[in-house]
């Protein structure tokens, strides 16, 4: 009897959790009519926000691959002085509030800083531009790729790598033909997580790139702008689209994780 009461209590608490997650999402679906949603998806402003978000987040995933895989390899395979520091730096953007990250980037890249002036003199203007969005999204999302790829590299049997070396393969050939294929699932998972994080990024992006319609207004920024200016239908349309994106990416991620476990 006691056991039954306990199970009931736990189930009730779980029910509260489900409500906490599901009710706000249901609220989104009920906020506006289907026809209005379709109209909003035809709006140039909404379409522009979607395009900017997709473009920047996909570029971020590619950049994260180029930067993150070598860092993940280094952390997984090598012992060196400062490894702990590098490891902490990888974790830092996850723990750091995005607004703090955005402010730091704004100070570094803004025209008042030496680095920002130097970039501007070279014709590179990162503030209030798509490039700024990409930098901000990369800053907050790259740890997900590094951590996932690192775990994947670490799970590879060291003797498999040694076998490749003793068969005459160079380290690069071994990396290309053994490590990358074996870490593939972990890297894919990292890419999905990075993409999801980049798509949902708001704080750092709005600090660095601002909210310029048709130029730097991403989906999350559009949600905020429209909601604040009373355009609830437009805000809801973009939010629902992001929700569908997130849900789909999460499903892919979970199936990947299951695949790895199997």
């Amino acid at each position: 009897m006691k056991s039954l009461s306990f199970d009931l209590a736990v189930s009730l608490i779980a029910g509260i959790f489900v409500c906490l997650i599901v009710l706000p999402m249901l609220a989104l679906f009920t906020a506006t009519s289907f026809g209005e949603l379709i109209n909003q998806f035809r709006s140039p402003l909404v379409l522009s926000a979607i395009a900017i978000s997709l473009e920047t987040s996909l570029i971020v995933v590619l950049l994260a691959l180029c930067l993150g895989i070598p860092v993940a390899y280094l952390l997984a395979m090598k012992s060196f002085k400062g490894k702990e520091i590098l490891d902490t730096l990888v974790d830092l953007p996850i723990c750091m509030p995005p607004l703090v990250a955005g402010l730091a980037l704004l100070i570094l890249l803004g025209g008042n800083s030496k680095f920002g002036s130097m970039l501007r003199n070279c014709g590179i203007d990162l503030i209030f531009s798509k490039k700024g969005i990409i930098i901000a999204q990369l800053f907050v999302s790259i740890p997900f790729l590094i951590k996932s790829a690192r775990n994947a590299f670490e799970s590879i049997n060291k003797n498999v790598i040694n076998a490749s070396l003793t068969l005459g393969a160079s380290k690069f050939y071994t990396f290309k033909t053994i490590l990358l294929p074996l870490a593939r699932n972990g890297i894919y998972t990292g890419m999905i997580m990075t993409w999801a994080r980049a798509l949902g990024e708001f704080g750092a992006t709005s600090m660095v790139a601002g909210c310029i319609p048709f130029k730097t207004e991403t989906m999350t920024v559009a949600i905020y702008q429209n909601a604040m200016s009373g355009e609830l239908a437009a805000s809801t349309a973009v939010a629902l689209l992001l929700l569908v994106f997130s849900f789909t990416l999460l499903l892919i991620f979970k199936s990947r994780v299951r695949g790895q476990a199997g």
């Binding site: 003797n159 498999v160 040694n162 076998a163 070396l165 003793t166 393969a169 160079s170 053994i178």
Partner: peptide
């Protein structure tokens, strides 16, 4: 010399076959 330049064959305890 690194292992790839020693002209050796190595059989590991756990076989270390390439799983893919």
């Amino acid at each position: 010399l690194s292992p790839d330049k020693r002209r050796i064959g190595f059989v590991f305890q756990d076989h270390a076959l390439f799983p893919h």
